[in-house]
């Protein structure tokens, strides 16, 4: 891990020549980010207030009249709230699961052992592998006809029927005599997210654990704290800032996640998160205005979360 020496953000001798060079070196990046990120975003806001069909996008005047029709369409029919609710459950479940597994994994490989490097590398696999490939493998493994999960489930665990993990919206599970409805496909998608993103939490937590000083733990040991108490009162509090940061980052990204859900279920079977709805507005209904309006709703939620993130960074004393 490269440790960064903290240096003051401004040099004592604030040379004007440096400032000019700085702007010159900076400008290509700035131009690209402005041209391909900022300007399109602003344009997207404009489109959200215009009637724009997919067929018209090559010819339409960018400054045509404004209307609220897209937002009426997005907010009408209650599907927005259903999809936002689904997104919320999906996000909360995925973030909790990925950070939870990441923490377990980081604690488990904390002390050196033979093969530690191999285990570390293996734990990173789900995160670095291409999303299209891993979703395809999951779909094949969970396939009701020849997938290995259902095959083993039926032959070894005595399932009566194969479970259509990715195409069933809901099933009732009997547990202790009571019946619980559970959203099968959504839970499978959450499990996938936990699997795919725990390495991200694992990496950050491991980096933090390596940097912890041994002194406070030794002191706790001398004072008679048990291993679990040491974890609860000494280690966990020191990990909390990183966990908070991870939670915010993962929430921002999962809330807007499109690839994973789209490739796993296509947004069917009760997994229609908000980002899939943007895609549907664009390609199925061919209504660019409504798609932009829906993505604007997502962007507003995102900006709120970004504000929280920046606030946390500032509180940690991070240089922006």
């Amino acid at each position: 891990m490269s440790a960064l020496p903290l240096r003051p953000p401004r040099r004592r001798t604030l040379s004007q020549r440096d400032a000019r060079t700085g702007i010159a070196l900076m400008s290509p990046t700035l131009i690209i980010v402005l041209a391909v990120v900022v300007v399109p975003l602003l344009w997207s806001v404009l489109i959200a207030f215009q009637q724009l069909k997919l067929l018209e996008i090559g010819t339409a005047n960018p400054f045509r009249s404004l209307t609220l029709a897209n937002f009426e369409r997005v907010f009408a029919s209650g599907r927005l709230w259903v999809s936002l609710g689904t997104t919320l459950v999906y996000t909360a479940g995925s973030v909790l699961l990925s950070i939870g597994i990441g923490l377990l994994a980081a604690m488990a490989v904390r002390r050196p052992f033979r093969g530690r490097n191999f285990v570390r590398a293996a734990f990173l696999l789900p995160y670095v592998a291409p999303v299209v490939a891993v979703t395809f493998v999951w779909r094949t493994m969970l396939n009701p006809q020849f997938g290995i999960v259902n095959e083993v489930g039926q032959s070894t665990f005595g399932w009566a029927d194969p479970i259509p993990f990715l195409s069933e919206a809901q099933r009732t599970v009997e547990f202790l005599g009571a019946q619980f409805p559970i959203p099968t496909a959504l839970l499978t998608a959450i499990a996938f997210e936990g699997w795919r993103y725990f390495p991200f939490a694992f990496l950050f937590l491991m980096a933090r654990l390596e940097a912890l000083s041994a002194e406070s733990e030794e002191a706790a040991l001398v004072d008679g704290a048990s291993p679990l108490q040491t974890f609860r009162y000494i280690i966990l509090p020191q990990l909390m800032p990183v966990i908070a940061l991870l939670a915010v980052l993962r929430t921002i990204w999962t809330f807007n996640e499109f690839d994973d859900i789209f490739l796993l279920t296509g947004g069917a079977a009760g997994t229609g998160v908000a980002s899939v709805r943007v895609y549907e507005f664009l390609t199925v209904q061919r209504n660019v205005g409504a798609a932009a309006a829906q993505s604007l709703v997502l962007a507003v939620v995102l900006v709120l979360m970004l504000a929280v993130y920046l606030f946390l960074m500032r509180r940690r004393g991070e240089r922006l």
Partner: peptide
Amino acid sequence: VNALFLAAYLFPAIVMAIPLFVL
């Protein structure tokens, strides 16, 4: 500028997709 880049890094693809598609 630094904050702008951080925001651009965190901004998800699906929000950028519509305007870039049109552009």
